[in-house]
């Protein structure tokens, strides 16, 4: 599904990623851990094409396509979805209009006509029920006045509508918000198919409990320095990152 090769990226001239290699297969769930400032969020923003981040070297192949050549919107159409850590409030753009614009843009990309209004509203209702989001949220502005938990549920709702194949779940600092983690993890599991993959960014063991990842990667100073299965995640929860950093330092000497 996704192959990242020797990825270097910088923001405002400062190099953050210094050669990331990562391969994610169909149906796999990967967890990315790492100390603050190691580059986890940078990687997620590079994957979705945030123009603030500059890729200086390396490549990303997504289902055979050069991902870095695609605009953020085309990446979305191709199946990349990011559940944002802190979804932004956009007053004045109603959820219904937002979803209609998003879905019809995707249909257009694949040469399909816009979804008929009645069918669209029916689909929206079904997806809403699936993820447990109340009807009244649809007429509100995007995330406008939503609580933290409601915003997370809204991310999962959007995931349900857009049916991505690859989801990035950015939960870097939301560890204390138990509900947020649970909503995102349960939501993803609910929508998961044998084809859908995820990259989960977290510090927290709880996320490992919910998602039972296939692989855990540890990012330190812009490089993946250690990889393992779920048990690596639990070990980090116990021992912190210092031992991994030391190990990495020894290797580079």
């Amino acid at each position: 599904m996704l192959e990242i090769r020797n990825l270097h990226a910088s923001v405002e001239g400062k190099e953050i990623l210094r050669g990331v290699n990562l391969t994610i297969g169909d149906g796999e769930v990967h967890v990315l851990m790492g100390p603050n400032g190691s580059g986890k969020s940078t990687l997620s923003h590079v994957l979705v094409g945030n123009p603030k981040f500059e890729v200086t070297k390396g490549e990303i192949v997504f289902n055979g396509k050069d991902l870095l050549e695609l605009s953020p919107e085309d990446r979305s159409h191709e199946g990349v979805f990011m559940s944002f850590q802190a979804p932004i409030e956009i007053p004045g753009v109603s959820m219904t209009n937002f979803m209609r614009a998003a879905l019809n843009a995707k249909r257009k990309y694949f040469g399909q006509d816009p979804m008929p209004a009645a069918e669209f509203l029916k689909m929206l209702r079904e997806k809403r029920k699936l993820v447990g989001l109340d009807a009244h949220f649809m007429s509100r502005g995007v995330n406008e006045g939503f609580s933290g938990g409601e915003r997370k549920r809204n991310e999962i709702f959007q995931m349900a509508v857009l049916e991505p194949t690859f989801s990035i779940l950015d939960e870097t600092d939301s560890g204390l918000d138990v509900d947020a983690l649970r909503i995102v993890a349960e939501g993803f599991n609910q929508l998961r198919t044998p084809k859908t993959s995820a990259l989960v960014i977290t510090h927290y063991q709880r996320m490992l409990d919910y998602l039972t990842p296939d692989f855990v990667h540890v990012l330190v100073n812009g490089r993946i320095v250690k990889e393992g299965n779920a048990s690596l995640g639990y070990e980090i929860e116990q021992r912190g990152f210092d031992w991994i950093k030391e190990e990495a330092d020894r290797q580079s000497l």
């Binding site: 979705v48 094409g49 945030n50 123009p51 605009s71 953020p72 919107e73 990446r75 979305s76 159409h77 979805f81 990011m82 944002f84 979804p87 932004i88 956009i90 007053p91 004045g92 753009v93 209009n97 937002f98 614009a101 998003a102 879905l103 843009a105 995707k106 990309y109 502005g141 995007v142 959007q158 857009l162």
Partner: peptide, 24 residues
Amino acid sequence: LYLRQRGIPEKEARLLLQHAFIND
């Protein structure tokens, strides 16, 4: 970026945000 990540083309996204701004 949020709108574009959901697949809304940049031009359309700008338009939505400008319209939303006037909406009040």
